[in-house]
């Protein structure tokens, strides 16, 4: 099965970080990526939510607003798409994402249509 692992964390942690802290954080993600290279199908970090735009189409009219869909302290900051045998394996991988140490990882199974 495939699962999307959504990384939620306090954005201020990254913006307030020192250069050294930032490098430590990046290398933790590098190590994670190497450890699960065989499982990770895709993954990206996202720019902070102040760059987000939310779009809705209602009655044929497009409404565009500044900001993320949900204003929360812990924001979506990145994701991995992984292959896992079952939820337990996906949970085990999610628990190793560096973001799990400070924020939270939401594990969502990918819908399949047959």
């Amino acid at each position: 099965m495939q699962y999307l692992l959504l990384i939620y964390d306090d954005e201020k942690r990254w913006t307030n970080m020192t250069e050294a802290g930032m490098q430590k954080g990046m290398s933790a993600y590098d190590a994670f990526g190497k450890e699960f290279a065989g499982k990770i199908k895709a993954g990206n970090a996202l720019q902070p939510t102040h760059t987000a735009t939310t779009v809705r189409t209602r009655d044929g009219k497009r409404l565009t607003t500044d900001g993320p869909y949900a204003e929360t302290k812990e924001a979506l900051g990145g994701y991995y798409l992984v292959d896992a045998n079952d939820l337990d394996e996906a949970i085990a991988i999610a628990g190793k994402i560096p973001g799990a140490l400070t924020g939270a990882i939401e594990v969502r199974p990918i819908m399949t249509f047959d």
Partner: peptide, 10 residues
Amino acid sequence: RGAGIPYRVP
């Protein structure tokens, strides 16, 4: 079923 919770002893 949907999330793939395995039927096994951990």
